Amino acid sequence: MGAHVRSGALEIWTEQVGQGPDVLLIGGLGDTVESWQFQLDGLADRYRLTAFDNRGAGRTAMPAGPVTVAAMADDAAAVLDAHGIASAHVAGFSGGSIIGQELAARHPDRVRSLVLQSTWVVPDPYLRAWGRFIEWLIDAAPDERTFLEHFFLSIYTPRAHNDGTVAAIIDEVVDFPHKQSSDDLHRFLSAFWAHDGTGSLPTITAPTLVLAGGIDPTARPELGRAVADAIPGARFEVWETESHQPFQEVPDRWNARVAAFWDEVEAGSGTPAPRTAADHAADSAHPSPDRPQTRSG
């Protein structure tokens, strides 16, 4: 069961499952707790996982005033406070990875380790152009389904589009009762285009694993590599056949990889487990994923 927790005047929707070392999951653009369903289901036997709706998404309102990544990082810290969590393994994807970076820089004692999926230091011209296209699409699309059909071309692999996975996700998003307004989407996007992690990344002390999809057209591997290069001791991996959200398309593989990383940190080494021959074979095998049953974006 989920519940709202308070951060100042803001009521943040959170859900918590499982038992074990604490994990905080941070979603991306417009994403809610449901985007992490495969992790909430697949890792709860080993970890206590907390997920939340970002401000302006799902069941968390968008407060008045400027929307900044720093404020959203403080929201994440407030979620930890509300649940009595001193520190947690933090995982974020896309915009959530940027929030995770800022959380680790602003509140280093709260971050046990950091997993950054589909991330960047600062948007390059290509990513900014893609962002302008999405901003245009939000207003130009005649309805939500049409927006999602076009937006998800940049998010999921051709495999997921062709096997019906994306169609199922779109149906779930359209049926989701807690809609994000177009205005809130614009404000959320603007916060990320304005954010530059160049100065904060070198200050991150948490063990960090950076993951990139080899065919992600947005948070491309070179952007993820720049993040890993900027964070002392960070490990960087490219999953060659995956796109922006492998934690949904190949959740069993993603869960196993990040759990191995967390286990290394818990054991005290702070070093991600090395990739194995099986990992490389999986990259080249174009695995048939389980179909996600969660909303995303």
Rank of each mutant, 00 (worst) to 15 (best):
T32A: 00
S35W: 11
M1V: 10
D75V: 11
D139N: 09
G18S: 04
P272S: 12
I99P: 02
V17S: 12
S190Y: 02
F38N: 13
S87C: 11
F133A: 06
G268T: 05
V115H: 02
A160T: 00
A9N: 13
L103G: 01
L137D: 13
S113Q: 06
V115L: 05
A194N: 11
G18W: 12
T119A: 12
A88R: 03
L223H: 09
A282N: 13
A61M: 02
A61E: 12
T50W: 00
A78S: 15
P142F: 04
H286P: 00
I134K: 07
S94Y: 05
Q101H: 14
V250N: 11
L201P: 03
V115T: 13
I85Q: 09
H161E: 03
I215D: 10
G65A: 12
F247T: 01
S113V: 03
S288M: 14
S97H: 04
D171I: 08
A77P: 09
E222K: 01
I215S: 00
V90N: 05
L49I: 11
P272C: 12
L148C: 06
Y47R: 14
T60F: 06
D163P: 05
S35V: 14
I85N: 01
F38D: 15
G100T: 10
V67I: 14
T203I: 08
A260R: 15
A44P: 02
L49M: 10
A104W: 06
L40Y: 01
P251D: 02
H107S: 07
V67N: 14
A140P: 08
L80W: 08
G131L: 02
P246E: 03
A73D: 00
P221M: 02
L25E: 10
T119N: 07
V79A: 03
I98S: 03
G213Q: 00
A260W: 12
H286C: 00
F38C: 11
G30Q: 11
G27W: 06
S94I: 07
F52I: 01
P251S: 05
T241S: 15
F93G: 15
Q39I: 08
G56I: 07
Y47I: 04
T14K: 08
R112I: 09
D75Q: 07
A88E: 06
E102K: 01
V67F: 13
G214V: 09
Q117N: 15
I98D: 09
N255T: 04
W36P: 02
W13D: 08
G224T: 11
R295F: 07
Q180D: 09
W130K: 14
G18Y: 11
L209R: 02
P246I: 03
R6P: 04
F192M: 01
I231A: 04
A234G: 01
G297C: 04
A281N: 02
W136D: 14
S94K: 08
A77W: 07
E172A: 12
S118G: 15
